[in-house]
C-alpha cells in the first residue's frame, strides 16, 4: 500500500513539475525577437493561465499524498538516516516539509493573481509568485527522489 502511494505521489509530482516548469518559462521576459524560435521559446510558448488551476490541484493532492507518507518516513526512514549519520539528508527533508507548507500557504494568492482576466499591472507579481513556487516544487521533487534512493546512492 505504502509503495503504491509512493509511486502515485511521485507520478503526481512529475505532472506538477512539468506544468509549473512550462508556466515558469512562459512568464519570463521575452526579447521580442522574430523569426526562428528556439526550443526554449517553443517550450515557453504556452498559455500560462490554463496551467494555474491544474498546478493548484496537483500541489494540494501531491502534498496530501506526502502527508500520508510522512508517518512511514518518521518511523522507518528518519531513524535509519540518523543511524547512518546522514545528518544533511535529514536537513534537506526538514527543508522539504517547510517548503511544502509555505507552498500550500501561497496557493490562495497564486490562484488569485492567475485568475482571468489577467492584468498587465500584475505581471511582475505573477512572475515572481510562479518562480518561487517553481523553486519549491523542484526542491521537493529532487529531494524526494534523492531520499527515496539514498541507500543506493551513497552506499
Amino acid at each position: 500500500m505504502i509503495t503504491t502511494l509512493l509511486i502515485v505521489h511521485g507520478l503526481l509530482a512529475v505532472a506538477l513539475l512539468g506544468a509549473i516548469t512550462h508556466q515558469a518559462f512562459s512568464v519570463r521576459k521575452r526579447t521580442g525577437r522574430q523569426g526562428q524560435r528556439s526550443f526554449v521559446d517553443q517550450f515557453s510558448g504556452v498559455n500560462p493561465a490554463v496551467y494555474a488551476t491544474p498546478i493548484v490541484l496537483l500541489f494540494v493532492v501531491t502534498c496530501i499524498g506526502g502527508g500520508f507518507l510522512y508517518p512511514q518516513y518518521r518511523l522507518d526512514v528518519r531513524p535509519t538516516l540518523e543511524d547512518l549519520q546522514y545528518r544533511a539528508a535529514n536537513g534537506v527533508f526538514e527543508i522539504k516539509e517547510h517548503l511544502a507548507a509555505i507552498g500550500l500557504g501561497m496557493l490562495p494568492i497564486y490562484a488569485a493573481y492567475w485568475k482571468t482576466p489577467l492584468f498587465a499591472a500584475h505581471e511582475t507579481t505573477r512572475r515572481y509568485l510562479t518562480w518561487i513556487l517553481t523553486f519549491l516544487v523542484w526542491w521537493n521533487f529532487l529531494i524526494g527522489h534523492i531520499l527515496n534512493n539514498i541507500k543506493g546512492l551513497f552506499s
Binding site: 500557504g105 501561497m106 494568492i109 497564486y110 493573481y113 485568475k115 499591472a121 500584475h122
Partner: peptide, 17 residues
Amino acid sequence: LATRPAGRAMIFSVVFG
C-alpha cells in the same frame, strides 16, 4: 480596472508563511 485580485487571499498567504 486592474484592481487587486483578492485582498483576503493576500492576507492569508502572507500571514501563513
